[in-house]
Design a protein around this nucleic acid. Structure first.
Lengths: 258, 258
DNA sequence: ACCCATCTCATGGTTCAACCATATAACACT
DNA sequence: AGTGTTATATGGTTGAACCATGAGATGGGT
């Protein structure tokens, strides 16, 4: 079947059999010939259709599973089901790259700052009063937890604040990007433990006030100030320890819990 | 909002044999027991050490390869080499997720506009004169191609302009995100064919002028105006058809040509 | 000494034919 | 109506075999 060459655009190594299987299956999903929730043919059926061994089909399916395009279920009536993309896949890739020293914590938090200021600017234009009330409930919870010095809950609610904000932009692409980056931020936050201070909460209150006044510049500035202080705190905590050590530790811890 | 407990990470299924192999190999790399450039033991040796079949080792190695942690080389003295993180892994994950998510062209170009304005603002602060000269060379090329009505080359050079700009931010995370979104944009652009107009080129010239004056606001505004006009053009071409339909078509077309 | 062709062989790539573990629809039983 | 059992197609796993590759070793020619 793949006897002749398929030059295409910079195939890198299209030489392997299962790369071709991967490509065709990806194409099926991308072109929505199979929709989200649909089941692909069984491994044995695919092997026959592609005229390759079942092992090659398995390696291809494994790749699609790892990249989050399909989910594999065992048992009769199991199989490979197309599923909606999972942001933690991208998060994982980003975290892996930090382990491999492709970029630093400073790079990450800087990008996060730009993303969050963009998000807050958009939200200041688009949020309805109802949306702002829901944000207000979140901030109130943060204030209450901070008053009780319950820092783990403060950290948790703060994460939700950012998630809600990204959701309120109404733009799914920005949401995906934001979730991916925040996933890595969350790992670091978990590894270092909650910040025992209500500084972020006080910033939150002001951000919400700016949002209610639809003052995008002020809200963005407040967000930037908040994130800068968090970044400084982390840098002091981490000192000279390599970032891989931090997130590697948390990965191991999370796996143990599972 | 998520009122329930901790989201944490998906436990996945640790039940499969090769998941354990993956975990141990990842740990080796994360803990830097094997360093970048080192070679892992051969598939056969790993199979013996882990007491599993070679197929399971292969699926584990495949996973590590896909996530960009190792590179596989054939031939004697080949093997699995730990390699530095490859940004295109994250780029592909993001692009995959965008294909799976049901988002419209409007969502994509909107996110791209925010991203590009951020990029151009950062570059206006950080670019050296040498950097700007290199950008100038790119713009000059675009002007020349436009004068010759060579629209395919104009489109190609324009893509390079955005890539260079993202590179000049000096932030690898932003570069990765930018590349991911532009990858999808590029697919759409290829599917619809080049825009036969020098409007974009004229915007380019002005953006460069603003950059040389270090006028971030003006450069961002010019960029926004440019992208808005491109977006309008595409909307007339494709209406509200889902993005997956467009990009799927171009994949197929490229394959036929090969 | 140098160059180039040839050989070597451990490595990843691929196939095949089994068997195991699992989940669920359908059925049998209470 | 509810409960337990079974049949069976699915993914998970094994082991042995063979093919294709490519960096080093070899050796002959200049």
């Amino acid at each position: 079947m793949i006897a002749s060459g398929r030059p295409l655009v910079s195939p890198a190594r299209a030489s392997r059999t299962f790369d071709e299987v991967i490509r065709q299956l990806q194409d099926l999903i991308r072109r929505q010939k199979v929709k989200i929730g649909d089941r692909l043919p069984s491994e044995r059926a695919l092997a026959e259709q592609f005229q390759v061994s079942r092992n090659m089909v398995r390696e291809a399916l494994r790749m699609l599973e790892i990249t989050g395009m399909i989910e594999l279920r065992t048992g009769r009536y199991g199989g490979a089901f197309v599923c909606t993309g999972r942001p933690e896949i991208v998060t994982r890739s980003l975290a892996d790259m930090m382990h491999l020293a492709a970029f630093s914590l400073a790079d990450l938090t800087e990008a996060r700052l730009w993303l969050s200021t963009t998000v807050v600017r958009v939200v200041s234009q688009r949020a309805t009063e109802t949306d702002l009330d829901r944000l207000g409930a979140n901030v109130d919870a943060a204030v209450a937890y901070a008053a009780a010095a319950d820092w783990p809950h403060v950290a948790q609610v703060n994460m939700q604040f950012h998630d809600m904000l990204a959701e309120l932009t109404g733009n799914p692409v920005l949401k995906i990007i934001h979730d991916s980056v925040m996933g890595v931020i969350r790992e670091i936050s978990l590894a270092l433990g909650p910040i025992r201070s209500d500084a972020t909460v006080r910033h939150r209150v002001k951000i919400l006030e700016h949002l209610r006044r639809r003052d995008a510049d002020a809200a963005a500035a407040e967000m930037a100030a908040n994130l800068a202080s968090v970044h400084d705190f982390w840098l002091r905590e981490i000192g000279d320890r390599p970032v891989g050590e931090i997130t590697g530790a948390v990965s191991t811890a999370l796996r143990r819990d599972a």
